[in-house]
Design a protein around this nucleic acid. Sequence first.
RNA 1: GCCGGGGUGGCGGAAUGGCAGACGCAGCGGACUCAAAAUCCGCCGCUGGCAACAGCGUGGGGGUUCAAGUCCCCCCCUCGGCACCA
Length: 829
Amino acid sequence: MDYDFQNIEKKWQRIWETEGTFNADTDPDREKFYCLEMFPYPSGALHMGHLRNYSIGDMMSRFLWKRGFNVLHPIGFDAFGLPAENAAMKSNTPAGEWTWHNIEHMTDQLKNMGCSYDWRRRVETCNPDYYKWTQWIFLQFLKKGLAYRKNAPVNWCSSCGTVLANEQVINDGHCWRCDTQVVKRSLEQWFLKITDYAQELLDDLDNLPGWPERVKIMQRNWIGRSTGARLSFREKSTGELLETFTTRFDTIFGVTFLALAPEHPFVERMISLSPKGEEIRKFVEKSVTQSSIERTAVGGEKEGIFTGFTAVNPVTDEEVPILIANYILMDYGTGAIMGVPAHDQRDFEFARKYGLPVKVVITPEGQTLEGETMETSFEGEGIVCNSSPFDGLPTARAIPGMIDWGVEKGYCIPEVNFRIRDWLISRQRYWGAPIPVIYCGKCGLVPVPEEDLPVLLPEKVKITESGKSPLGEDEEWLSVPCPSCGGPGRREADTMDTFICSSWYFFRYCSPREDNAAFTERDANYWMPVDQYIGGIEHACLHLIYARFFTKFFADLGLCNAREPFTRLLTQGMVIKDGAKMSKSLGNVVDPDEIIHKYGADTARLFILFAAPPGNDLDWTERGVDGANRFLRRVWRLAAENLELLKKERGDEPPLSMDALEKPALREVKRRIHSTIADVTRDIEEEQQFNTAVARMMELLNTLSSFRPEDEREKRLFREGVDVLLACLNPFCPHMTEELWALTGHETPLAKLPWPKADPAALEKDSVTIAVQINGKVREKALLSAGLSKEELEREVLALPQVARRLEGVEILRVISVPDRLVNVVVKG
RNA sequence: GCCGGGGUGGCGGAAUGGCAGACGCAGCGGACUCAAAAUCCGCCGCUGGCAACAGCGUGGGGGUUCAAGUCCCCCCCUCGGCACCA
């Protein structure tokens, strides 16, 4: 009987689907487990990264079902986005049609993988039933004042024809999606006030022990909290107060200039007042049009201009010149800095270039510094000087001490600044959720009333590469009566960033068909938070921050209790082939369909889980796939060739206990069976190291293949071994294990049976190999009974003839004895 | 530059401070076969040796320890994140 994986896999997939085996319902009487993989963008077909993501998630879900949890394991599609528009332009197919076609195809592929999803819960973010609620959520942000419009220099990707959020600009200023160099443009855009949650987003990282440390570090870096003080310098001729932010208030006596960002509001005033206004204007215009890379690269040329204006240091009453400098960013802090060249490398370089004085106010302990001759700034901790009355204080005490003093004197106020910026969410694209807002000449900005949602995306829109919102060309769609006064109004033509859609889909899965709300409190409070989330590391500072932000917002609205969406996070590595990430341009892609067709889904899943631990990159080799397939065929033969024996006395036959087995070889088999259960359980549950779990099952197979049962007792033991192997392998390779389970006479499918339990009595070892070391080197091995005490072990080992021979005439200094492990004899010389 | 991950056989990878290299891939030898495939059995870190065995070995150098891939210090390489953030 051959391992006919194609028919077997079809058969079981049909059974799971028709029986709804993996459907889950809210049931407060049962303990839940929410297992989630990042949903795919329906690009056309699954790729190996998906196959890996979903193999891991499916194995874990099936395992947890068997552990007795009420498991929610849903899937859907992140279905808005640019590729659909590009496809529409290229092939003249409407974006929606293209997307829905891909969704159906990829759904089939997921079913072919044998994934245990609750298909009733599939969601698609481009479905009006879904984006109605995306729009509703936007309105809640608007209501709370957390969604706002502002004119700002924003990231523009010319290739995508739209703006991008800061998180979406990666690799030195490139678009996350298409890698085009991003440029700055000044535009009026919609933002979400994620900065209101910066502190909580940072603090709550400490409550996520189940997240990889590196993801948390990346988020901490991204949020970028710094503490310091805000202090104002008065401009001498106008009396204008210029605010600055510093983390080094201890250097306040070392300020030798003030620098403003070219975009700083006071710059306009200086231009109009100054005789050299034209010159300043030219400098500002040049700086503003510099690309963000030129302007912000480390070591990039710092450029500035003297304005002729003067600021007064509030602490020292010293007068310092005001400059405009291209290295000052308007959107961090106050857009103005106090220049302390002696203790800030950037200010130092700038000061040297423009001949500004360098005044030392901190020295390394026991040394002196000379402002005029130093070649680099001193940014480290040291001792305050030239700052009477603070001279002699060490940095660590000077910073808080001087701030306290400054507060008392009214010079400064303590302040915390974050690096993270508000989230730019409007996109000048068609295939996204329309922003539900109407502009009225009389009433201004009017939110679309909730009862009018969804604002439907028109189906027939001409998509061009104009760089303007395609919806803005659709007059019919645009013009709408103002909901407030009934007068003529126009719809917002921008759509929302698709990261908005994916920031709450895991809530929608809880109440996927709910018509009256985005989700119900009952469902969300039962299922949320997600217990295990699985996906790529590339979302560390994108989706994973946005989703946390949304969850906190929902909690503040009282929609759910969870303040964090994902309790445990598993970030899987990339799939590599021939030393490089699989990609079309490198021509090293392997099509999941081909693999499933040639070897079957079980083989593909097993290879993926065996070839590397989930966090590592996975090296795809056809040889390795062959190996996985070979293992499955061996399992198949082990059962299929012993069907008669395995089927016998099925049903209520209890396994033989350890006590009933006397022959050491049989006890060894029994031990292997139960250590497999124990090891596989621990590897999945605690270590999340699925490759070693598979290795343990391979060892069990090796044991069972060489075991030739003869009498009835041995046959019973053999049956137990095969049962355990199939049960443990089931979450990894669900089709063939179910088939063999049925063939060997079981009536209840494995999917409905609990995970096997290891018998503690069968884990006890009779004897152990003790390594005998002399001065730390293994010289002999001894087979001794297990469980000997330190003293017994030492005595037994030293009494062994071969050991005694080695120790003849040698002076023993010390003996270290580790029960069941080794004995180390320390000798002289 | 700063922060983080990682360097173990030919390869993917195992190892609560306690026998380094589990398991698999590749390779080598053998069985079966007219032959091949498939399958099965055996070998498989490096060096020396017919062998028993000995020496060396987890990026490099030091250290702690009876014992270090594992802990501590310094350095190298590599991958990733951030990068004029005041």
